[in-house]
Design a protein around this nucleic acid. Structure first.
Ligand code: SF4
Ligand code: SF4
Lengths: 151, 151
DNA sequence: GAAACACGGACCGGAACGGTCCTATACTGA
DNA sequence: TCAGTATAGGACCGTTCCGGTCCGTGTTTC
């Protein structure tokens, strides 16, 4: 159920990698690809779309590559996934009025939309910075409730 | 991103329908299908797998059909989705050690697993009963926080 | 025994996904 | 200035999955 595409997966890895190397002004797609054994060309295209969406800054030429457009804290996992996979959501009835024929009779739609928002909220509350810091063992003041659902 | 299969969608609709009609000892797949304009044969197969998983009870022959195996409160949306779509999760690295080659080098894996658990928790906290009751306008004591994530 | 139902396998067209290839363009450094 | 390294982006392709259909079998009731 609910599978995340591998492209978005790769995108998150790359973003995290960039967040971990702020000293480099630019990291090439090839470098990241080799570091994680990701198909280089595919990663390249992913980073391209990410720059087109404004999450990255690119520089061509030698010693070129990509760098985060904003601070790692200001980029959420949600944005990354959204940029790569598009605004697809759990139900099929979200694509501008043209998807599901049951919209009228379906009563399951609204509660699922809530779930959808909840998931989006969770993803939005996770920044690239969080991913990069995750290596450390359980920090102290970590008990901030990020979501609360009511349905 | 994160699309729920239509089969699971149909399954939830059917379950909710059954929960709304407790007076009937059994409702045929055809009835539900016609009520919501769902392809009958497809819905039939969905309900079959649902019974095989123990969520429904079936009765063959005339006036036969399906009925909830347990109380509507005791069946979570998570179980339904799990039964229909299988134990698939957001990352590709969950299928018993055979999926993603990056398991070792990937550092994004664990945080995503947390997200996964969170989503599962949300789905588990929603019962068929909740879906059936959803028609009513905002009840009173509805502010129970169901999830809290820490990453 | 016929109708109405549940079961279950086989099958299929289309869409999405993961990935490759090829070309054009831009920047850098020797 | 020229070669090399990088981004940018289009076209393409094999595989898988999803939604759906078809068919045949078993079971219960009237
Ligand atoms: S309208 Fe209902 S059946 Fe159709 S996609 Fe939305 S939730 Fe699913
Ligand atoms: S190991 Fe990492 S890259 Fe592979 S599927 Fe899991 S999260 Fe994605």
């Amino acid at each position: 159920m609910l599978r995340l595409t591998k492209k978005a997966d790769y995108g998150l890895i790359a973003l995290k990698f960039l967040a971990e190397h702020p000293e480099a002004s630019a990291v090439s797609a090839k470098d990241v690809a080799e570091a994680y054994k990701i198909p280089a060309q595919l990663l390249a295209k992913i980073l391209q779309t990410l720059t087109k969406k404004g999450l990255l800054r690119s520089q061509a030429g030698m010693n070129g590559g990509y760098a985060l457009a904003r601070d790692a804290r200001a980029i959420s996992a949600f944005e990354v996934i959204l940029a790569i996979d598009g605004p697809l959501f759990i139900t099929s009835c979200t694509k501008g009025e043209k998807s599901c024929e049951l919209k009228t009779s379906c009563t399951i739609k609204e509660p699922l939309a809530r779930v959808n928002e909840t998931i989006a909220g969770v993803l939005q509350s996770i920044s690239i910075q969080d991913l990069a810091e995750q290596a450390r063992p359980a920090a102290k003041g970590q008990l901030e409730p990020l979501v609360s659902v009511t349905l």
